[in-house]
Amino acid sequence: MRRLLSRAFFFVVVALQVYFIARAPQDPHKHFAWRPFNESDTWSADIDRITRDGRRIPIEEPWSGYVWGELVRQRGLGVPRGWRHASSGAKSTQAFLQEALDWVATHTPEDRESLYYEAQFHFTRNRRGPYTVVLRSVEREVP
C-alpha cells in the first residue's frame, strides 16, 4: 500500500506541475508555473467611491472612520495613486485590485453612503502603453 501511495503521489505531483505550467498564460498570478520576472510592468490607479447621490469621492479621503491604506495593505495596493513597478505583473495587480474593491465594499458596515467603488487602473507593459481598465466593485446594499 505504501509503495502504491508513493508512486501515486509522485505521478500526481508531476502531472499537476505540468498542468500548472501549461495553464500559466490564463492565470493572472501564474501560480506554481515558475515564471519569475516575466514582464516589466508598471501600474497606477485612481480609485473613487461612488455615493448613492452620484458623487465621486477619491478614496484618499477617509470616510465613515475608514482609511483605504489601513483596509488594503497588501501588494502595494494601499497607496494606489502614482506609477510603480508591478512586481508580479500588471495582470496580477489588476486581479488583486478587483478583489480588494470587492472586499472593501463588503467589509465596511459603517459606511452608509457609498454604492460601489470604481478604479481607473492604468498600466504599462514592457514599455508599451499606458493602457487603462475600469474596475468596479460589487454594488453595496446601503440601508
Partner: peptide, 8 residues
C-alpha cells in the same frame, strides 16, 4: 496580520 484588512 494578514486578516486585518483585505486578503484573498
Amino acid at each position: 496580520y494578514y486578516a486585518d484588512g483585505f486578503y484573498s
